[in-house]
Amino acid sequence: MDSRIGELRYKEVINVTDGTRYGYVGDVEVDLETGQVRTLVVPGRLRFFGLLGREAERVFPWSAVRRFGEDIILVEADAPALSARRRR
């Protein structure tokens, strides 16, 4: 299945381990030397309608991606091992 990076923004990221729905892909980190996708970044959820900012964004390494579907991306990630970072 071919997919463009821009089309990833319309796919929801779901954990195959426990069914957690993290949200939609917001950004992709690419290694410019090799052209390979390194990570998928999902923005944090809004807290109290955005008045209290956002939760930390979730970063999924490419190695965690298990399957691509028509409108979802299945990842395998343990909650404690999942990388989360604050927006810059």
Rank of each mutant, 00 (worst) to 15 (best):
Y24S: 05
E70Q: 13
E12N: 07
T34F: 04
Y24A: 01
R4G: 11
E12G: 09
R88V: 12
T39H: 14
F49S: 10
R85T: 13
E7C: 04
T20H: 09
R47S: 04
V28Q: 07
I5H: 04
T34V: 05
A79G: 06
G53V: 08
T20Q: 12
R88Y: 09
P61Y: 06
V37I: 15
R86Q: 13
V13Q: 00
V37N: 03
D31R: 12
A79H: 10
F60H: 07
V59D: 04
A81Y: 07
F60M: 08
D78M: 10
F60I: 05
F48V: 15
E76R: 15
L32Y: 09
G50H: 08
L51I: 09
L46D: 15
E29K: 14
G6L: 01
G23E: 00
G19Y: 01
V13I: 09
G50R: 12
E70C: 05
L74Y: 06
Y10D: 13
R45N: 11
V75P: 07
V59F: 04
V41H: 01
G26I: 02
A79Q: 12
E7A: 05
V75T: 01
E55V: 05
I5Q: 08
V16K: 12
V42T: 08
T20C: 03
G44D: 07
S3N: 08
E12D: 07
G44S: 04
D18F: 02
F68S: 08
F68C: 06
R87F: 04
E57P: 02
G53L: 09
S63I: 14
T34H: 06
Q36A: 15
R67D: 10
L51F: 07
D18A: 02
Q36Y: 15
V75G: 07
Y24V: 11
R38G: 09
R88F: 01
G19F: 06
V65G: 00
V37Q: 06
Y24I: 01
E57G: 00
V30R: 14
E76T: 13
G50W: 06
I5E: 10
R66K: 15
T20K: 12
V41D: 06
N15G: 01
V25A: 02
Q36S: 15
R9I: 09
A77F: 01
